[in-house]
Design a protein around this nucleic acid. Structure first.
Lengths: 123, 123
DNA sequence: ATACATGCAAACGGTTTGCAGAATA
DNA sequence: TATTCTGCAAACCGTTTGCATGTAT
């Protein structure tokens, strides 16, 4: 556990989530000016494999990262790209039953139009 | 509707799914030798926007494409990367009720270990 | 005739990697 | 001391794009 890794970990913990690797890099750089981008990518990958964080593959642009806590899905607006968490109570257990074997993780992204974008489109 | 687009469309229809853009390009090239990679990418994007096909963002490697038919989720083995379809009966409607607005599409990817990889890991 | 789609190749963006040196256990 | 991790920069890979030409309507 290096200073760099601890810093990245802390940033993840103190942040609501949905950060990109580069945003994390920028935050880290504020407190450790010569940390390298590659280090951030390497550590994020390690933390993902250790299930400490979850990688969200976005329909557009770079991946985003969430600290893993309560399992949840994501609501993605196809209009503006805004991303919201949605609780998906019991989905994981249901899936496990349906599949008949242990689920390691899942990613659920629901595409919709947020109220603002729906309004725009209606006009 | 150009010849290129028709060909790509036909390849999608006659294929079980989960193809990458480059695999589609290779198949297309067999029948139209000087079709360009860019044309395939452009048409896949158009077909995606028209909801004729669905883009699957994979945990590793390039995106894959399914012809849209019955809504379904995907089972992804973290060991070997194999991808399977799973029916997710009624999920879409449930989600719509839960969210209170129309769902445009969703992507559900469940990570697990397939029997072969589970066996390997147990050893 | 006009607009749009194509082939080509170069550029792009996010991510990974080889390497020499530094930090860790 | 042995090993793992870092910073740096170059490479990588999937995808996009500008442009001149060709095709469809």
């Amino acid at each position: 556990m290096t200073r760099q890794r601890a810093l990245i970990f802390e940033i993840m913990q103190n942040h609501p989530g949905h950060l990109t690797a580069d945003e994390i890099f920028a935050l880290a750089k504020q407190r450790m000016p010569n940390i390298a981008r590659g280090t951030v990518y390497r550590n994020l990958k390690l933390m993902e494999q250790a299930n400490e964080i979850a990688r969200l593959e976005m329909p557009a642009g770079p991946d985003r990262f969430d600290k893993t806590s309560v399992p949840h899905g994501h609501l993605y607006c196809d209009g503006c790209g805004e991303l919201q968490d949605i609780p998906v109570v019991g989905l994981m257990r249901e899936l496990e039953t349906a599949i008949g074997t242990q689920v390691r993780s899942y990613q659920l992204t629901i595409h919709y139009l947020c109220p603002a974008c729906r309004r725009k489109q209606a006009q």
